[in-house]
Design a protein around this nucleic acid. Structure first.
Lengths: 366, 366
DNA sequence: TTGTAGGCGTTATCAT
DNA sequence: ATGATAACGCCTACAA
């Protein structure tokens, strides 16, 4: 905080646009233009400005710029948690697209608590973000009202909400769970269990349960919500424990559908420790299409979600909205794909198959 | 953009501090104080202001606030990638601490490219972040100079740099790799292979290789950098492929140390597909202490890193720096712990052991 | 192509 | 306890 002015700005007050302008012999406005719209400035002036910037070590103050231009070039992103989560993959795809256009992400962790999400959204509005990215479609009423009243471009990720706040990109969680359960039914399994993560404040899990139940009813599978269905943390150890409990309750269970690949992996490992052979003694299917699924022994049948595509598409749509370009469809379904692998290859006694075939039903089905 | 003023702010120009002040019958400054320093305002006034805020739907403009107060309450965080990465865990712990103090994270993905990191840091400086969080200690010279010249509080995560930019929290990557290799040596293994991820612009991997080599020399293990060492992506499939190549080059290999649990898992699965028994035919150790390690069959020996603690400690130190509180030690070593499990339980012919014992050497060792 | 004037919405500072 | 005034550093709008 010394008073002496040295050109590098070290130890002195940071160089401002006025300093640059003075040194370049032009008006501050010209410096601003040279930076933002170089084509509106003569080559000669541009060089003088560039030289002055280099000499002063000038770094434009974007907060002043934001205040003046009413644009922060910032998107607020609410992500439940970064760990073990495909939510992080969605965000990564989203970030790729936005970064390329000069936007940065402001991060907020909601830990799946809508009230925390609401507080984060208020904070984002206070920071005047240009857009908002929300994971899932479970939000408080005030969150919805705030976003709509303030007309902030918003995109919801991973679900297909019937009443979107603004934009949404995702896939049918109902449809995917229905399709997996149907696959089991068609393979001849009658006793199909379901492991999901907690459904509280997580509409994706709710819809997956609904999809499972719909198929159970439609195909006349064993309908035993108490015995065959369990909710647990996204955690391998919890999956192992729940598998033991399941086998106690229903030793006759034939197949297990887990709405997460790590849960499926945990169940698979525990099944093997218990001496069961997968899929002969118990068939297992996962969800998410993580890399680990195809590397397990046996390889894991799963539902592949176009994770990065969803994030990227969301980024493109939000950019359109911000630029006030027309948005064709506010809710976009990017589908899913069932990847059949060894873990569900056979009903008891049938030969193993190694297939990467898929089906691609879309539709909301919610 | 209508001109009519309605109290909800819907469709009209957003309410500002002046609107609130007018409605409450006080000066704007008083509203500001009521919000920032409630104790400096009379209870009566506070209530009038609160009522006016509710009536107008006023949301303070933090960008104006930032410009005026020269504080953005924002930390810029450079994270190489969110996916499959303990870097995300560090960041999550860090974020917890900062969020509690009102700070938010601005995110930048460097993808392990120092030049990209530099561009992100410039952008952060332009946005006048109050502090910066960097993953690792591989940075361009300009990044260092920029940060030091601008005197921005900075913390480097995961390494123990000899020449820190400012603050750093991590553990000895050298020491951990050395300790694992030593463990193998003490168990009687002579032919120990190493899989790391790419060392280019990643000093953590470089140090892990160095730690391995130091132990190889010290304990007289088979020293064959060409044959026993490989660099690969953090990817199970790549690990499987590299294991096959390794077994072709060195069919006599006895143990494999992978500097990532997913790499270890990929190698383990492939070994099993090849009919090898772990640890009898090949012992395997991982790194990171991920949840999956203890659930594999056999359970995986690994190095547990205090991931969240590192993030939290980094957050606390950065907050101290920002508040200009004295920082006792600028570089903090939070250690590591070797978790011995079944995958390294025995040399050929020895009985299996199931142990959760650990050792906890600290020290830099770089 | 370049410059001038004024304001963006707060808060620091000094008064009262 | 409250208020008036002047920045904060840039950009919009308009003028030359």
């Amino acid at each position: 905080m010394t008073k002496m002015s040295d050109p590098t700005g070290r130890g002195a007050k940071r160089a401002g646009i006025r300093d640059v302008a003075r040194l370049a012999g032009v008006a501050p406005m010209t410096v601003s233009r040279a930076l933002s719209f170089p084509h509106l400035v003569s080559a000669e002036t541009r060089e003088k400005v560039a030289a002055a910037i280099a000499a002063t070590g000038y770094i434009p103050n974007r907060v002043a710029s934001s205040l003046s231009s009413n644009q922060t070039m910032t998107i607020g992103a609410v992500i439940p948690t970064l760990r073990n989560s495909i939510a992080a993959d969605f965000a990564e795809g989203f970030n790729q697209v936005l970064r390329a256009r000069g936007y940065h992400l402001l991060l907020g962790n909601s830990e799946f608590v809508p009230e925390d999400e609401e507080a984060i959204v208020v904070e984002f509005l206070s920071r005047r973000v240009d857009g908002i990215y929300l994971t899932g479609s479970t939000h408080t009423e005030r969150t919805r009202k705030l976003l709509r009243d303030n007309a902030v471009p918003t995109v919801e990720i991973a679900s297909l909400p019937e009443d979107p706040i603004d934009l949404a990109v995702g896939f049918s969680n109902f449809g995917a769970a229905y399709a997996v359960t149907k696959m089991f039914a068609e393979q001849g399994y009658r006793k199909v269990a379901l492991f999901t993560t907690f459904t509280k404040d997580n509409e994706r899990q709710v819809e997956r349960q609904a999809g499972y139940h719909a198929a159970v009813h439609e195909f006349g599978l064993d309908d035993d919500p108490e015995g065959l269905v369990a909710e647990l943390e996204m955690d391998l150890k919890a999956a192992a424990r729940q598998l033991r409990l399941l086998l106690e309750r229903r030793p006759d269970v034939e197949a297990l559908f887990c709405t997460g690949d790590f849960i499926a992996a945990g169940a698979l490992f525990e099944a093997q420790r218990l001496g069961l052979t997968v899929p002969q003694d118990l068939a297992i299917a996962g969800f998410e299409g993580l890399e680990i699924a195809e590397n397990l022994n046996p390889s894991l049948t799963t539902v592949r979600i176009p994770r990065y595509e969803i994030g990227r598409k969301a980024g493109e749509m939000l950019l359109d909205r911000i630029a006030r370009r027309p948005v064709e469809t506010p809710v976009v379904d990017l589908g899913f794909e069932i990847i059949r692998r060894e873990s569900t290859a056979a009903t008891a006694g049938q030969p193993k198959v190694r297939a990467e075939a898929g089906e691609r039903p879309a539709g909301t089905g919610g």
